[in-house]
Design a protein around this nucleic acid. Structure first.
Lengths: 172, 172
DNA sequence: ATAGTAATGTTATAATATAACAATTACTTT
DNA sequence: AAAGTAATTGTTATATTATAACATTACTAT
């Protein structure tokens, strides 16, 4: 079995987002069951809130929403949930934004890169072995042993490019 | 002329660091002269402080040192100098550390990746066209237009690997 | 039921970063 | 040299992001 490029692609503007949420939640519950991790109501709620969009969300935005829920949450509540979720691989931290986004393929390895659309804010995740191996090659030149990689690419996604170029076929 | 891999490599533990500082300062002054940018005493001092090592330094560490110098500096002083220096390309921000490190090749483009040694904290910069093009290829799959790339790799540099493996030839 | 562990609540504070406006310095034009 | 302008720096205040420390609650296994 050859190595595979796994990409979350950008969601189309018309996609049915509740399907994303359902899939993510189902997968999270399955993973936590298998690994004997505790997806408590709080953690689950934070996870749902993160999945309300494909845009990274900050800890304090999450906190606001928890408070709107009626919880008496404080910053540590959120950060602890985020720590749990990122350690499980259910959520990724986007370093260049101090923000968090749901992971699309939590059961796979996490040699991923993020593609962040500066127009709509959505993020796509790409696990491309070629990319990883380029990093490894660079490391080899330096005699450097790689522990982890962080790749965050900024630009414009297909849909937003289409809008900017006034493609008459596209409606948003 | 073919594209070239430009790497700062990790400094050897024995290297004469004042040569690094002198080279960086000379280059900075040259660049600012050419581009008609103002490397004021404050900016120059911040630049020197950043170059006191190959480890990224935080804004508040710089602030402390400015105060030790006898200046009555405040946070905005530092952040403004950092903004100037990063915009010129004389300094890079390491996103995963909220810290700043001197650029080794400020007159070149900045499609660089950082290799951060978790043992000694030193950072090497690598401008590898293969790495950039992997990112571009990934982007193409997504229909994504790249504006900028952020690559930060964590691991262990050659010297620190040697120490850990108890290479008897190495002394630090 | 109870001891032990994990999770969450709570308070306080640390660390990182910027906004807004004042004062100073440097650069131009005369 | 003086006046006018723009750039830089000073200063105060505050926003944003994150964690430490300890109390309480909930779950787990005997």
């Amino acid at each position: 079995m050859s190595k595979e490029i796994i990409s979350s692609t950008f969601p189309s503007p018309q996609h049915n987002h509740s399907e994303c949420v359902d899939a993510a939640l189902g997968e999270a519950e399955r993973l936590c069951r298998i690994r004997d991790l505790r997806l408590t109501p709080l953690r689950k709620r934070v996870f749902e809130l993160i999945w309300q969009s494909h845009r990274p969300v900050t800890a304090y935005e999450l906190l606001d929403r928890l408070v709107q829920d009626g919880r008496r949450a404080q910053a540590p509540t959120v950060y602890r949930s985020l720590e749990f979720l990122t350690e499980c691989g259910l959520v990724h931290r986007v370093e260049s934004m101090n923000a968090y986004v749901g992971c699309n393929q939590p059961s796979r390895g996490h040699e991923v890169g993020f593609f962040i659309c500066e127009a709509c804010g959505d993020v796509a995740e790409l696990a491309d072995p070629a990319l990883s191996s380029s990093v490894t090659k660079g490391a080899k030149q330096l005699g450097f042993t790689v522990h982890s990689r962080l790749i965050e690419v900024r630009g414009t996604c297909r849909a937003c490019t289409a809008i900017k170029t006034d493609d008459p076929k596209r409606m948003l």
